[in-house]
Amino acid sequence: MCTGRVDPAMVAGAFKKGLDGLMVVGCYFGDCHYITGNVQAKAKMDITRRLLKHVGLNQDRLAFRQCSSGEAAVFVNLVSEFDQRIREIGPIGGGGDPVEAPDIFRKMETAEAVLAGEKIRWVIGKRTPFLESGNMYGEVFTQHEFNRAIDMIIVEETEVQEILRELREGARSVKGLAQALTIPSERVFKYITALKRKGMIKLDKVSDRTPYFQIIPQEG
């Protein structure tokens, strides 16, 4: 399989299941059978790594390396190096990551949801036109500008996906969500009003002085 086909959501899913390290090995740039598959793969893995780091995973757990099918020795070397690094960090959530188990698995689930989401997938797909020919307005992005756009989605979508996951389990209040997710409550308030504006949640009930919100199931 071409490394360009490795789905970022799958990567997060694997860590969620307890994987300690993942190395994606692609061909050298210029050698790709599908022309730019490996370039795409590297870009996707870079973004995935940014997201996983943001939610609390040691970023060394996800690596992208290159070698050709004829280079057995190089391959062995890459693998043993990576293996050694993972051994140094230890098992996932066991102290080698900013967030520890079992919280890290919840974070990985969030990351999976973000990476499976339309926003980030679409913008990742726009990477080549953004960097080369420009967006809908003809503005060409620098890599840095593109990273900022991606980081914007990473920061906000992680919080939104965590909120939506909680809401899928039942009605929640702003205060309750903030406490459960350790997101500042004023940010939760803004997200909740935004989700309501979009028709994705609605008021469930007001109990005492606390409004609760419930999710509106979306079609498709």
Binding site: E118, K119, I120, W122, V123, A149, M152, I153, E156, E157, K190, Y191, T193, A194, R197, K198, G199, M200, Q218
Partner: peptide, 27 residues
């Protein structure tokens, strides 16, 4: 139908609502 605002990745303060909540770039 609000399909666009569900997917728009850009949040900004909504001027119409005096910045009390977000709107997205298309909204």
């Amino acid at each position: 139908c609000k399909a666009c605002i569900k997917v728009c990745p850009v949040n900004m303060l909504d001027d119409f609502n005096e910045g009390l909540g977000f709107r997205t770039a298309v909204d």
